[in-house]
Design a protein around this nucleic acid. Structure first.
Lengths: 166, 166
DNA sequence: TCCTAATTGTTTAGATGTGAACTGTTTGAA
DNA sequence: TTCAAACAGTTCACATCTAAACAATTAGGA
């Protein structure tokens, strides 16, 4: 079923390029929404979960808020709030960097590790369900195409090269 | 360049399915962000622009807030706010449906039409730039794959079938 | 006719995204 | 050494999105 039909639009999207772009955004939104609902059932948000996962796969090393923002493509203002809430619920803790007092080091607590270990299997299962029935060659091609879109965005739409981890 | 490299992650994503999913979400976010910035330069948001475009391609017919929400996959609570702001800046106007007093009919003003006619060419040019250098067969394959992901989401993650235009 | 259910829109509370201004800290060049 | 620039984080104002509760209205069956 085409996108226009799926959304009940009055007419099909004019060009296949435009339809592809809308497909990417719409599918991404739908995935993010499904993730949000899954985590919401566990008093967490997807943004918060992603922070915890980054900390988990840093092998116990603490990360600065700036580094977390870079990896998750979240700007520093948002990261302040996300870490605030994670700290309030006791899943992470902040400490000042010993060598650079500008930096907040964020470290996962035992409680945070427990939450990730409980939620990650369900998350990965959901990923498997979403991508099921798609051949490996289609996945490879999908990834190449999306990478091309992003390189177009960087080269042709953002002359400078978006600083600030956004 | 792979996703992990691009984001500066410490290790590659475990499975290609997971990498594909992250690619979709990340690329969609990046596109939405570029759109937001483009419209922001004209005192508008992408959500507001999308409403105006729907009205434009309805051939002067007014649409209810519920119908707009269905088409743009925005829930009704958000639509109240989006239409509020568009009305405040004079780009649309509300009127009560003559046969059903629950319904707000939203109609574009002359000023709104002018704004769309100014912004749409640049928007479409941006779409062309983002999708440039990608073969038609890749676009077709991309669309089929993303549609498959959405049908997986509906069948396997949302047992009911998300009502409320979300 | 009456009554329940569904629909439309608004409101609320909270989390996240946008940009911009600001403080404090560090770095590097004159 | 000193001073300007860069950087990390916070705060602000605003728009969007989440869910949930609510009022008003309409539709459909008993």
């Amino acid at each position: 079923m085409g996108l226009a039909e799926e959304l009940g639009l009055e007419r099909p999207v004019e060009t296949i390029e435009h339809e592809s772009l809308l497909n990417i955004v719409y599918t991404g939104t739908m995935i993010a929404r499904a993730a949000f609902r899954y985590f919401q059932g566990h008093s967490l948000t997807d943004a918060q979960f992603n922070v915890l996962v980054q900390l988990k796969y840093s092998d116990g090393k603490a990360l600065s808020q700036a580094e977390l923002g870079r990896r998750l493509v979240v700007n520093k203002a948002d990261m302040t709030g996300i870490v605030d809430r994670l700290e309030r619920t006791g899943l992470v803790e902040r400490s000042v960097h010993p060598k650079d007092r500008r930096v907040n080091l964020v470290r996962m607590t035992a409680e945070g590790e427990k939450v990730v270990s409980v939620l990650e299997p369900g998350y990965l299962k959901g990923v498997g369900l979403l991508m099921s029935g798609i051949s490996r060659s289609d996945l490879v091609r999908l990834n190449r195409t999306l990478e091309k879109v992003r390189s177009n965005a960087k080269e042709k739409l953002i002359p400078d090269g978006g600083r600030d981890g956004r």
